[in-house]
């Protein structure tokens, strides 16, 4: 019952604090791509892989009072920040059926990266069925406005390799 909500709560709890809706979207996508049990469906949007289901579930968790969303003005634009509430912690503790997989090191590592970098990593992962050259070309085309440098792409690919070791 409400297992998908509980899994997300576990992620929020592991992350401690997360800044930015885009960052949250990319973290869950990357974790899902590495076979962590998130079931939110993703499609390709503005900033790369995006899940309307995830947006909805986060809103529900806010409405339930399990997480708190802060909308803060930072460097001229608004950012969202999330924290688990006491009630959310109590809900999480009541979820004894949840698998005991340890998400924390993986998620924390992602949380330390910038939102722009995670956008690149998740977009590269989104097109991971393409051959490497075609994959890079595709990312450069669909992310033309972000203007990612070759070095950034190389760094992102190396980071994906590093993530594979963490799983």
């Amino acid at each position: 019952m409400m297992k998908d909500h509980a899994r997300l709560m576990k992620a929020f709890s592991a992350l401690g604090e997360i800044v930015g809706r885009k960052k949250l979207q990319k973290i869950i996508f990357i974790a899902k791509k590495h076979n962590y049990a998130f079931h939110e469906k993703y499609q390709f949007h503005f900033f790369g892989p995006y899940s309307e289901e995830l947006t909805l579930r986060v809103e529900e968790l806010c409405n339930m009072g399990f997480i708190k969303e802060f909308n803060e003005k930072k460097s001229g634009y608004y950012q969202y920040r999330y924290e688990v509430t006491e009630e959310g912690q109590a809900f999480l503790e009541a979820q004894n059926e949840l698998a005991a997989e340890n998400l924390t090191p993986f998620l924390k590592n992602l949380n330390e990266q910038s939102s722009r970098f995670l956008e690149l990593v998740s977009t590269l992962l989104y097109f991971d069925t393409l051959e490497m050259d075609a994959r890079i070309e595709k990312v450069q085309k669909v992310k033309a406005k972000q203007n990612y440098m070759d070095e950034e792409i190389a760094e992102a690919l190396a980071y994906i390799e590093q993530l594979n070791q963490l799983v």
Binding site: G20, R21, K22, H45, F46, F47, Y50, E52, T55, L56, E59, E60, G76, Y77, Y78, Q79, Y80
Partner: peptide, 18 residues
């Protein structure tokens, strides 16, 4: 079982909507 709908939304510059 949950249902949810957002009838219309728009991207506000500087925000992270999709």
């Amino acid at each position: 079982d949950s249902s949810s709908d957002l009838p219309y939304d728009f991207y506000r510059p500087g925000e992270e909507e999709e």
